[in-house]
């Protein structure tokens, strides 16, 4: 059975996609950029960061493009004053949530959060900073986890569980107290499940996960080709 092809309109442009695809995928294939943060091609989509929310005609609600399947005749708007103001507010909430000090960050200049702020024209943070006292876990021989710079996108959790299969990372606590955690809250360096593959470091959008020894602005991530890994793994296992 072949997957049906559906046609829809995104930002006034007629486009088409497979029925199995999401609004985000089809938009991407057609060069329409929708901001994302928690989404990463090759990992399960969670709809958590809410940056990719779009308007769909006939629906009063906003829909996260990363988990919204396309439908025939759908009319999607990815840019509007309302969406822009929500996206700006969400990025600002992230900056205010933890201690993001771009000037002294290993990922300065190579950071998705920083880029989002710039793309959305954010030149200051309206909300007062929360300034939580958070730890830096430098116990691993090759990598560092700095909770101050974490945006809780859970890419590291998903890449480790879904691709590497180690599930070293998870989230502890909940709400504003949520934090990434290794094993039973053990220092990363003494984790018995970590394979040291470094995928988590390279999918991390900010400077929260980095290679040891990097100085300010030196940490450039090499995104692993996750869709390739997924496909190849399925092929080799056959």
């Amino acid at each position: 059975m072949t997957t049906p092809i559906l046609t829809l309109t995104i930002d006034g442009r007629p486009v088409s996609g497979l029925a199995t695809e999401t609004v985000l995928q089809v938009a991407g294939e057609n060069g329409i950029a929708i901001p994302t943060l928690c989404f990463l091609d090759g990992l399960s989509a969670t709809g958590a960061c809410r940056l990719c929310m779009v308007e769909i005609e006939g629906s009063a609600k906003l829909h996260p493009a990363c988990v919204t399947p396309i439908q025939e005749g759908m009319v999607v708007t990815t840019q509007s004053e309302r969406l822009r103001s929500y996206r700006r507010a969400i990025v600002q909430l992230l900056f205010a949530e933890r201690n993001h000090v771009c000037a002294v960050c290993v990922s300065n200049g190579h950071c998705e959060l920083q880029d989002l702020a710039r793309e959305l024209g954010i030149d200051h943070i309206d909300f007062p900073g929360r300034y939580p006292a958070l730890a830096v876990d430098a116990s691993h021989s090759r990598f560092v986890l700095d909770h101050n710079r974490c945006v809780l996108c859970t890419r590291c959790v998903r890449v480790c569980a879904e691709i590497e299969g180690a599930h070293t990372w998870d989230v502890k606590n909940r709400g504003i107290r949520s934090q990434i955690v290794a094993d039973l809250d053990t220092p990363w360096g003494t984790s018995t499940t970590c394979t040291g593959c470094g995928k988590c470091v390279h999918v991390c959008p900010t400077g929260a996960l980095s290679e040891k020894g990097r100085s300010v602005a030196e940490m450039q991530k090499k995104r692993p080709a996750l869709p390739y890994l997924v496909a190849n793994r399925a092929e080799e296992r056959r």
Binding site: F95, C102, A103, V104, H124, G129, Y131, L134
Partner: peptide
């Protein structure tokens, strides 16, 4: 005009705010 990150975000001087 708020000139530079310290004036704009608090930046490095604000790193002490955690304590």
């Amino acid at each position: 005009i708020a000139m530079g990150d310290c004036a704009v975000t608090g930046n490095v001087p604000a790193m002490r705010n955690i304590m």
